[in-house]
Simulated assay, not measured.
Amino acid sequence: MNKLFNSFMLAFCLMFMCPLYSQINKAIYSVSINNKEDIDKTSPYNSYYKIAQENSNQFTFHLIFSKDSSDFFINDNLEMEYHSFKMVKAFSRYQGFVRKTKSKTFIEKEIDNKTYILEEKTEYNWTLTTETKKIGSYNCYKATAEKTIKNKIIVPITAWYCPEIAYQFGPNGYGNLPGLIVELQIDNVIYGLKSINFDDNTIKFKEIDFEKIISQDKYDEIIKEKMKFILDE
Rank of each mutant, 00 (worst) to 15 (best):
152 K>P: 01
118 L>V: 14
80 M>A: 15
80 M>N: 06
182 V>L: 11
191 Y>A: 09
122 T>F: 05
79 E>V: 09
163 P>N: 08
92 S>C: 06
89 K>Y: 04
145 A>M: 02
165 I>A: 05
160 W>A: 08
128 L>S: 04
58 Q>D: 13
75 N>E: 15
68 D>G: 00
95 Q>W: 06
173 G>V: 06
103 S>I: 09
62 H>W: 00
72 F>C: 07
156 P>R: 07
88 V>E: 08
146 E>A: 13
147 K>C: 04
64 I>H: 09
133 K>D: 03
138 Y>E: 15
104 K>L: 01
129 T>A: 05
62 H>A: 15
85 F>I: 01
190 I>Q: 04
174 Y>S: 07
115 T>Y: 02
170 G>F: 08
70 S>A: 15
185 Q>D: 01
162 C>S: 15
115 T>V: 15
111 I>H: 01
88 V>W: 00
101 T>S: 15
117 I>P: 09
92 S>F: 04
144 T>M: 10
137 S>P: 02
118 L>I: 12
88 V>R: 03
160 W>T: 08
61 F>P: 06
76 D>P: 03
82 Y>H: 04
187 D>T: 06
109 K>P: 00
141 Y>R: 13
68 D>K: 01
83 H>M: 07
132 T>Y: 03
57 N>H: 14
194 K>F: 00
57 N>G: 10
146 E>F: 11
112 D>R: 09
159 A>M: 13
76 D>H: 10
